[in-house]
């Protein structure tokens, strides 16, 4: 038990450190100096040098990297080069939007995918199965930002039910906020759900072929009962693996979708910061997104062990 977790946690920490190193090297060590970038090509060398010292960019690379790590540990990410305000605050403001968006999309994804996957597996090779599977094939091929635009065309331009973009905030209660995240999360979820539905279907079908399913049927359990009690739990492993991997796509997707709907989330922040050459914000945002992906996959790994204790033994 403890060895299993210890190994996983060590891997997690190593991965996070490696990710931070790569991000740091790409964003801070590659050509040009952040100060020069900020001030433009024709700034006077003296001014650039002054800004370099002010931003602490004159220190050696290793020192700056360690300072950044230390800052992350205590929650001080430094100040934005452009706004002068703490980066942590800037990010926190945006997460209020991005995290609910990601959670809503994941919820819609899971509900749609499990419903479609279980339905098609239970009706294997019947008309409903073929129909839903063709739909998922189309769903996988849709670029999520195009689907988002189509949703805007339908609900905002034609039916005029929902606004085409912007975020109402959480100040007037929860509903206006959820309403403005509805189209974005649906457009993120539909494509992911199409993939997950196919995974669910084949996982359920695989388990349905197992001997214990026949045994359960033979001892008199109904089809429905076998499906819910025995099959689903065993089919969840591949489904959860894919869900974990999809979370990475989902976060990358929020960057795109936030731009479609003009939502002031993390994705927009990254883009503004790239435009402003505010590399310290970009660096911390990218680190945050990468860390979320890594941590979610870590949680999935650990959850396996709870769903299927055999895995723990196999991975020791």
């Amino acid at each position: 038990m403890s060895v299993f977790f210890l190994r996983r946690i060590l891997t997690l920490v190593a991965t996070l450190v490696a990710a931070s190193l790569i991000i740091f090297l790409v964003l801070d060590a590659l050509p040009g100096n952040a100060a020069q970038m900020l001030m433009g090509a024709d700034a006077s060398p003296d001014a650039v040098r002054a800004l370099t010292v002010k931003l602490g960019l004159d220190q050696p690379l290793a020192v700056r990297y360690l300072l950044w790590l230390k800052g992350m540990a205590v929650g001080d990410l430094g100040n934005s080069y452009v706004y002068g305000t703490p980066v942590a605050g800037l990010i926190a403001e945006r997460l209020v939007l991005t995290i609910p968006l990601a959670i809503m999309s994941m919820l819609i994804t899971v509900v749609l995918a499990l419903a479609a996957g279980i339905y098609t597996a239970a009706n294997h090779n019947k008309l409903g199965d073929v129909g839903v599977m063709s739909l998922t094939q189309v769903g996988i091929a849709l670029p999520n930002f195009w689907f988002a635009i189509l949703l805007i065309l339908l609900f905002s331009v034609k039916l005029q039910l929902l606004s085409a973009g912007g975020f109402a905030g959480w100040d007037d209660g929860i509903w206006p906020g959820i309403r403005s995240l509805l189209l974005p999360s649906i457009s993120l979820a539909v494509v992911q759900a199409a993939i997950l539905a196919r995974v669910t279907r084949s996982a359920v079908l695989e388990v349905l072929r197992e001997d214990f399913v026949r045994t359960a049927r033979a001892k008199g359990l109904g089809k429905r009962e076998v499906l819910w009690r025995h099959v689903l739990r065993n089919a969840m492993i591949p489904v959860m693996t894919v869900m974990g991997l999809q979370f990475a796509n989902l976060l990358a997707g929020t960057i795109v979708i936030e731009n479609v709907f003009y939502l002031p989330g993390l994705g927009r922040l990254i883009f503004q910061s790239i435009a402003n050459r505010d590399l310290i914000v970009v660096r911390n945002c990218v680190m945050l997104l990468a860390a979320m992906v890594v941590i979610v996959n870590f949680v999935v790994d650990v959850l396996y062990a709870f769903i299927d204790p055999r895995i723990k033994v196999a991975n020791l």
Partner: peptide, 23 residues
């Protein structure tokens, strides 16, 4: 294998953002 596990943490959009920020 560890290296390739780790690259999964950077979806194409994310690495493109990093590259676009510097290059």
């Amino acid at each position: 294998m560890r290296m390739s596990d780790f690259t999964f943490a950077f979806p194409a959009v994310l690495s493109a953002i990093m590259l676009a920020a510097v290059a």
